[in-house]
Design a protein around this nucleic acid. Structure first.
Lengths: 120, 120
DNA sequence: ATAATAATAGTAATCATTACTGATAACGAT
DNA sequence: ATCGTTATCAGTAATGATTACTATTATTAT
């Protein structure tokens, strides 16, 4: 993978913030520094970085992909009303522990990724 | 909520199979029994049933929503290559336990849903 | 410096999902 | 049982996030 100014900018943006922005939000931030950067470039690099394991993608309920620059092992809480995404850093997140953070939990989805027996 | 023949058909289809079909797959099955059923009707009812908690939606990597008629507490494994979705019914699913099923785990995403402090 | 070719900007295309509209069907009230 | 209200429907159009395409530019090995 060659160096590119645009990709470095995108990495810096996503690693430098604590929320979980969409491609569009990252595009907005990028344009403040590199006004000619293209939305396609943002999407392509986010996909690339995600494939390389440098960032994490979150498929949420708003039909947009959200990106997380923090690849340390942690879970997420998504508010069904406002869509806010909250990091959960404790090693084991039981519904009880999350309730203690002032959050009301109504459901959870845990998905593991990898290769099935046939595809290995 | 009023009774409707179409909705009952959709419920029966999704509850009667063990995989995790997309709206399109459910539409195909439905048309075999009710040839005039509309794709919009399928989408509307799937959303409705999901909101009511009668079925579960899975935001996967193929940009399509998948539906699960089994709302008992369980996790899922998604193959990064073929996209297959496998149910994981054991009470605690550690990467180790999943490996024992012949699956290679490369990552996991755990998302909790509910209401944040501001939205309660 | 040059050649080879990733990567980009800008734009067009894709396609899952949602919105819309006039017709139909469920169901409580009469 | 019929009527009126309105949820639901079939069919189609619109939406919008993401991807694909193309001519140009930038990186890097030689």
């Amino acid at each position: 993978m060659r160096y590119s100014k645009q990709r470095e900018l995108i990495i810096n943006i996503i690693k430098g913030r604590c929320d979980h922005p969409t491609a569009d939000m990252i595009y907005s931030s990028a344009r403040e520094i590199e006004p000619n950067i293209s939305l396609g470039t943002v999407y392509r690099n986010l996909k690339l970085l995600s494939d390389e394991g440098e960032i994490i993608t979150l498929e949420t309920v708003d039909k947009k992909l959200h990106y997380d620059g923090d690849i340390s092992r942690h879970s997420h809480f998504i508010c069904e009303d406002c869509g806010k995404i909250i990091d959960l850093f404790r090693p084991a997140n039981t519904p009880r522990e999350i309730s203690d953070l002032g959050l009301t939990v109504s459901g959870e989805k845990c998905i593991y990724y990898g290769k099935c027996q046939e595809c290995q």
